[in-house]
Structure formats: C-alpha cells, structure tokens
C-alpha cells in the first residue's frame, strides 16, 4: 500500500473511532435522560424525579385492577417483581392492557406514593406465538416471560 493510501486509511479509521468515542461519552453523560421509563424499584430507592413528569414501567399485578363503575377512572399496581407502585389513571386504556402485561405510564408521583398517570402505553414483549401454543405453555405451568424491567444498566 502506498503511503498516500495508508494515510487516508488511517484518517478513515480515525474518523470512525473518534466519532465513536465522542458519541459513547455523550451517551454516557445523558444516560439518565435516555431511559424511557423508571422501574418501581428506582422509585422506591428515590432515583425517580419527584417534582416533574416521568414514566414508570412494569407489569400489571394480577387482580390489582380496580375500575370505577361510573367513570373511566382505573387504578392498578405495577411491579418489577422487587417493588410495586400503585397507578391511578383517568382515560382509555390501550388494547393490549391486561393483567400481567407490560405497561409504561407517564405522570407524576404524589405525596402518598401513588403515581397519577396522564397517559398509559402498552409495552409489547418480543414473544410471538399462536394462541394454542400460549395456552399449552400456560397449562404446562410455564409463565410467559415478559420483557425485563431492570433499568439503569
């Protein structure tokens, strides 16, 4: 390889590596802002902001959904298996909302530790299967694994 080409090759490697390192440092610095949601454990340990809106993600606890018969008000518990937070919401829930489903709620933490949501989104997991297979899995006692909610990695 002649010296001129070698020089260009090194500059190319330098550009790619330089941009890579710079981006890695920026992303590292903004790590917290890039989290789309906090987990109930992070709320319990006080990592979540208390004066502004933020999102909390977790699985809806079985038998925790309470609906107000006269309005759209609903309350349910979200868990990441270690900690649980109670969410109150007034509005229409997405199609995929159900007990055991992953949910991301946007709102604010109230003084009593209750999370009042302005918006509730369903987080789909990465599993795809026909209904018969899901049924067979359930009958066999295997729990369908939902996306993990361990954040702050």
């Amino acid at each position: 390889m002649n010296p001129r080409r070698r020089k260009i090759l090194f500059s190319v490697i330098f550009i790619v590596a330089g941009v890579g390192v710079a981006t890695a440092l920026v992303l590292k610095a903004f790590q917290e802002n890039l989290l789309y949601f906090y987990s109930p454990s992070q709320i319990a340990s006080g990592e979540a902001p208390d004066s502004r809106l933020f999102r909390v993600g977790g699985m809806v606890v079985d038998d925790s959904v309470v609906r107000d018969p006269n309005s759209l008000k609903v309350s349910f518990d979200l868990t990441d298996t270690a900690h649980t937070v109670t969410v109150q919401y007034n509005g229409i829930l997405p199609d995929l909302f159900r007990e055991g489903q992953g949910i991301v709620a946007n709102g604010q933490l109230q003084d009593g530790g209750v999370f009042v949501a302005k918006e509730v989104l369903a987080k789909h997991d990465e599993n795809y299967m026909p209904p018969e297979v899901a049924e067979a899995l359930e009958n066999a006692g295997a729990e369908v694994q939902y996306g993990d909610y361990k954040t702050g990695k």
Binding site: Y36, F37, K123, H124
Partner: peptide, 21 residues
C-alpha cells in the same frame, strides 16, 4: 438493550433461541 425503551427487545437475533414460533 442499553436503555429502557417502549420498543420491545430483539426477537430473532438474540443469543438463545428466537422467541417467535
């Protein structure tokens, strides 16, 4: 994988068997 996102994780390209039928 690096951040908590609303988008689901990889289905086909993960290390263990793909979680799609």
């Amino acid at each position: 994988e690096w951040w908590s996102t609303l988008h689901q994780g990889p289905t086909v390209s993960k290390m263990d068997a793909p979680s799609i039928h």
